[in-house]
Structure formats: C-alpha cells, structure tokens
Amino acid sequence: MNTVVEVENITKTYNTTCAVDNINLSVIKGEIFGLVGPDGSGKTTLIRMIASLIKQNSGKIKVLGFDNVKDYKSIRKVIGYMPGKFSLYQDLTVEENLTLFATIYDSDIRTNYHLIEDIYSHLEPFKDRQAGKLSGGMKQKLALSCSLIHKPELLLLDEPTTGVDPVSRRDLWKMLKKLINFGITTIVSTPYMDEAALCDRIALFQNGRILESNSPNEIIGKYENLLYKVKSYNNYLTLQALRRFSNDSLVYPFGESLHLVLEKNDSGIDLIQEYIKKQNIGLVSFELIQPTIEDAFILLMQTKNSEIL
C-alpha cells in the first residue's frame, strides 16, 4: 500500500460558506506534500479533516486505510499533528512539554530522539524555559518536536513556518527533508511560494478548490506562456503603461521588477517594447525568463477566474 492519504470528493461548509469544495487528492508514502495557497483557501480545514478533528459534509478520506469518521481512533494513533496556532502548554517548560507528548504516545524522549535531534539541539539550552517565553521560531521548533517525538507515520503540519524567521524556516525545512529517510510522510500547508518548491508534490489552493496538483517541476513545466521580466526605474508607471497597452495582458509586480505574461505564440513583444519606448518613462528592459511556482499559481488563478467570469 503506497497511498497514505486518499481524499475523495471532500466538501466542507460552515453555515453558508464553503471552506473546502469537492477536493480530490492522494498522498504517497514518504513524500512531502504541500498544500499551497493564500489564507482562507481551505488548507487548515482540509488538514483538520485528515487529522479527524472535524467531519466533512460529504466525500471520503482514508488515512493509512482508516476512515476519518468511523476509524478516527485508529488514525489518532499514527498521526502527528501540529496546529497552525502555537498550542503547546505555555506554562510548561520545553522539556516538560516534550516529555508530556512522548508519554501520551507511550514513548519517551530517548527512543525517537534521533528524529528531532537537528532542531531540538537548538532548543536544548532553553529546556528549562517555559514554552510561552520562547521566541516565535523556537516555539515552532518545539511544536514540531512534540508532534514528531512518537514517530508518527503521517505528519500533519499546519503552516509551521508562519511568523518564523528565515534562518529557523530553513532549519525546519531541512529537518522535514530528513524525515523522508525514516519513511515519515508529511503534509504541510504554507502560504509561501518559495516553500512550495521544496515539496515533492503540491496542491495549489484557491477558494476551497485545488487549481492544480502535481510536482513543482511539472507544474512549472506545464507553463506554456511566455514570461517576461520587466525592469524599469518606475515600476508603477511601467505597470500602468503596460495595462494601457492591452487590457487583457497579465502583468504584476514580482520582487523588484514586473512580470509580464503573454500567450505562447504571441509575438507582440516587439510592439509592446515600441509602445513603452514612446511613453517617456525611461529605460525599460524586457527579458524572457523561466517561471517560478508563484508565476504558475498566478496564471492558474487568472485562468480559473476568467473561466468563472
């Protein structure tokens, strides 16, 4: 059995809002599966359903062969779940929290110490500090250690890096990568596109739907449009000028420059360049580049939205 999580036609509504809308996905043993999307796109709801914390309105979820509604007790024995909000006991020290969570699963810190060694070693100097007094990054490291200490088969992480400094983020991801060696499957949600590229496979979420689900490389590979990096002295004026040229063209700020998307056989770039030259906004350079996940996501969003319209 290679599939760890099987999600079939899952829908979840709260009152009248639809949080998750008819989602399908499957997660394979040993991979890091990323749920990528903006806040409120249904990632947390899906993770909670997989963790058996909430029930779906319709559809089926199987976790390691167990039904998330009927066999929730069996699921709870084999998963490690880390909520999006820091929820460890703030008045317990680092070590006490870890001991508590190890004991709950009939384990102890020593048995699975090798799993958390990399990040817990950062925490060890503060092991007598109360968890509430740790910094944001430390808190997340502790939370991850606590969800891992019983060596779960499936690790569910809800935005583990939100509010975490870049160095700690790298540490956390390095460790997630290492978990593959122990056969642990990870489902992680994140709003950050750069983290999406670190996953084995991702599902791009928007408004409770999955826009695309594949490996990051394949998602990028499917990108057939032409993507131009537009550098200029005044991004704002350039953006306005580009939009004036064509209402339909997709152009958006990206880092310190702009990205301009054209249809794959659109040869109008020369016309655009000529038009921009006349706009009197200084030197503007156009460079054909390879898309990132974020570009792919923005394009997918755009096409989905125009389909709806």
Binding site: A51, S52, L53, K73, R76, K77, I79, Y81, P83, K85, F86, S87, L88, Y89, Q90, F101, I104, Y105, C146
Partner: peptide, 13 residues
Amino acid sequence: EFGSMEYLLTSPL
C-alpha cells in the same frame, strides 16, 4: 481556548 485540546484530541488519549 488555547488550542491544546487539538493536540489532545488528535492523540490516542
């Protein structure tokens, strides 16, 4: 309120 119940509920306790 503090969310620790989420941990307890997803555990075999």
